[in-house]
Amino acid sequence: MDRLAFDMAHLLAGGLVLVSFMMIYQDRLYALLNVFALHAVVLSMSVAWQAWIQDAPHLYITAGIALVFKALIIPGALHRIIQRLGIHREVENVVGVGPTMLAGMGLVSLSIVLMLRLTEVADAFAREDLAFSLSVLLLGLLMMITRRNAVSQVVGFMSLENGLILAATGAKGMPLVVEISVAFSVLIAFIVIGVFLFRIRERFDSVDISALDDFRGDKK
């Protein structure tokens, strides 16, 4: 039973890393949102599994939040934003799938080496879980760097937060304060971003950040 619990947790955490990779090469916004929803579903399954094996019922709340907010409400809302802005046909200029995937693999191996080497004392699960969550976090960062479109940057940021939740739930008995705060931060982030997207659209009719880049640096 214990063995099964361990393997299952691994499977789900590894699945999250896999879905992160899938997000990296999506070049259509709708497809990206769908994969992000999948990411959130895998996360909520992973959190629910942790809740069960750690016998920590409060984690079910976190799982529920991941499922409802991140897998349903947020992708839905972003879907509408994309529609309203009329950018659903746009193919994004990603830095190129090949180099990005290679960079992603590099980051994953980096985090595994880092975590497994450094943390020999911590119990096996916590350590490997941290390696997975660091991978998800770094892949989210990578996505934020390689995308120019505001919506996909937001998605990158949320996948990064998913990595954090994976880490927080993997750490046994981490106080509830933090979990709720993480869920809340995502909510707040969404509100803020929503406000921003609305304003950006209002001003420029575009959510392409490169349109804003003209104003970088000092005014001549």
């Binding site: 969550s133 976090l137 940021f157 990064l160 937060e161 954090l164 880490a167 927080a168 750490a171 981490m174």
Partner: peptide, 11 residues
């Protein structure tokens, strides 16, 4: 991004 890294450090 900064705050996310800080949270990871806190964890």
């Amino acid at each position: 991004v900064g705050i996310a890294l800080a949270l990871f450090g806190t964890i």
